[in-house]
C-alpha cells in the first residue's frame, strides 16, 4: 500500500465533499498549501476564506459563519488551532455548540524538522476537555476521508487531528467508519494494544513482533477519542493488560482517556506509550518516533513488561 499523509486525504475529501454539500466553507490561516485546503480553494474559490496569520479571528469567523447555517472547516497547524485559539474554540464554538469543524494538520512530533514549536503534543488533551467537542484522530488516508465526511454530516464541533508525514494505508475502500466506535483490528488474548492515529500502524507491527515471542496481542483502533468507545475498551480489558499508544503527550490524551474508563469500570494493568511530558525537537519523523519511544518495538516491549505484572 502506498504511504499517504492524512492531510493529503483531507484536502481531497474536502474538495469532493464541497461538490455535494454546498454549505461547506473553508477557512485557513496562510497555510492552505500545507493543510491541503488549497485543493478546495482552487475548486471553490468563493467558498474559501484565507484569514491570514490570525488564528483567533479564524475560529471566531468560523463561528459566525456557522450561526448562519454554513458548515465551516477551519484549518491550520494543530498547535496554532488548539493552542493559540483555545479560548476562541471554547467560548465562541463549543459553548454555543456551533457546527464548526476544526481540521488541524501537522499534529504530533512527525512534523519533524520544524521542531518543538510546531509539534503539537497537547492538542487531544485540550480538545477533549471541552464540552460538546468530538475528537477524531484518523489512522490513515482511507479513515481520514471517511472521518471528514462523517464530521461534515454530524452536528456540532469536531476536532480532526491530521498529520504531515505520509503514513501507511491500513484500510481498504470498504472500511466502515462509525464515529465513536472503536475498531478491533486484530483479536488477541494476552494483551490489548489500544492505539490512535499514526500509532495504529505501529501497534499492528508491534502485534507481529509479539506474535514471534508467542504473545497474542489484540489491537484496537480508537479513531474517536471523544466520545470514547467504553464498550470496546472494556472488551480489550478482558486481555488483563492494556498498552495505549498515541503520538501525543501521555498526559490528557488517549492513554488518559482509556485509564479513566478502566479505573472506574474494570481496573487492569496499563502502560501508556506516548510523549513522556517533554517537548519535541528537530529530526526526521522516523528518527523522532524512535527517540521518543513511539516505535513498534517500544510498544512490544511495554506489552512484554506488562504481561509479567498481570494478576
Amino acid at each position: 500500500m502506498p504511504k499517504i499523509a492524512t492531510r493529503e486525504a483531507y484536502g481531497e475529501a474536502l474538495a469532493e465533499l464541497g461538490e455535494e454539500i454546498k454549505d461547506i466553507v473553508v477557512l485557513d490561516a496562510d497555510l492552505s498549501k500545507s493543510t491541503k485546503t488549497s485543493v478546495f480553494a482552487k475548486k471553490f474559490p468563493e467558498r474559501f476564506f484565507n484569514m491570514g496569520i490570525a488564528e483567533q479571528n479564524l475560529m471566531g469567523t468560523a463561528a459566525g459563519l456557522a450561526t448562519c447555517g454554513k458548515i465551516p472547516f477551519a484549518s491550520t497547524f494543530a498547535i496554532f488551532a488548539t493552542g493559540r485559539a483555545f479560548e476562541q474554540i471554547r467560548n465562541s464554538i463549543c459553548y454555543p455548540n456551533l457546527n464548526v469543524k476544526i481540521a488541524a494538520t501537522h499534529a504530533g512530533i512527525t512534523v519533524g524538522e520544524d521542531g518543538a514549536t510546531h509539534q503539537s503534543i497537547e492538542d487531544i488533551a485540550l480538545m477533549r476537555a471541552l464540552p460538546n467537542m468530538t475528537v477524531i484522530n484518523p489512522a490513515d488516508a482511507t479513515e481520514t476521508k471517511k472521518a471528514v465526511r462523517a464530521a461534515a454530516q454530524m452536528k456540532g464541533p469536531v476536532y480532526l487531528r491530521l498529520g504531515r508525514h505520509p503514513v501507511e494505508t491500513i484500510f481498504g475502500e470498504g472500511y466502515e467508519f462509525k464515529p465513536g466506535k472503536g475498531v478491533i483490528l486484530r483479536e488477541g488474548r494476552d494483551v490489548a494494544i489500544i492505539a490512535t492515529g499514526v500509532m495504529v500502524a505501529e501497534a499492528l507491527k508491534a502485534a507481529e513482533i509479539l506474535e514471534k515471542d508467542g504473545i497474542n496481542a489484540m489491537v484496537v483502533n480508537i479513531h474517536t477519542i471523544k466520545p470514547i468507545d467504553e464498550e470496546v475498551i472494556l472488551k480489550a480489558a478482558e486481555c488483563g493488560a492494556i498498552v495505549t499508544a498515541e503520538e501525543h503527550s501521555i498526559i490528557g490524551g488517549l492513554g488518559s482517556a482509556v485509564a479513566e474508563v478502566l479505573s472506574e469500570k474494570k481496573p487492569v494493568p496499563i502502560k501508556r506509550i506516548g510523549i513522556k511530558d517533554v517537548f519535541g525537537m528537530s529530526g526526521k519523523p522516523e528518527e523522532l518516533m524512535k527517540a521518543y519511544g513511539l516505535a513498534a518495538e517500544d510498544i512490544a516491549e511495554a506489552a512484554r513488561t506488562l504481561i509479567i505484572s498481570k494478576p
Binding site: Q56, N57, T61, T67, P72
Partner: peptide, 25 residues
C-alpha cells in the same frame, strides 16, 4: 441573542462570519 459573547475581543470575528455568510448567500 444572535451570538454567545462575554470573553472580550471575540464578537467582531463572529460578526465578520455572519457578514461573510450574508454576502455568500
Amino acid at each position: 441573542v444572535d451570538m454567545t459573547t462575554g470573553s472580550l475581543g471575540q464578537g467582531l470575528s463572529a460578526a465578520n462570519g455572519m457578514a461573510l455568510a450574508g454576502k455568500l448567500d
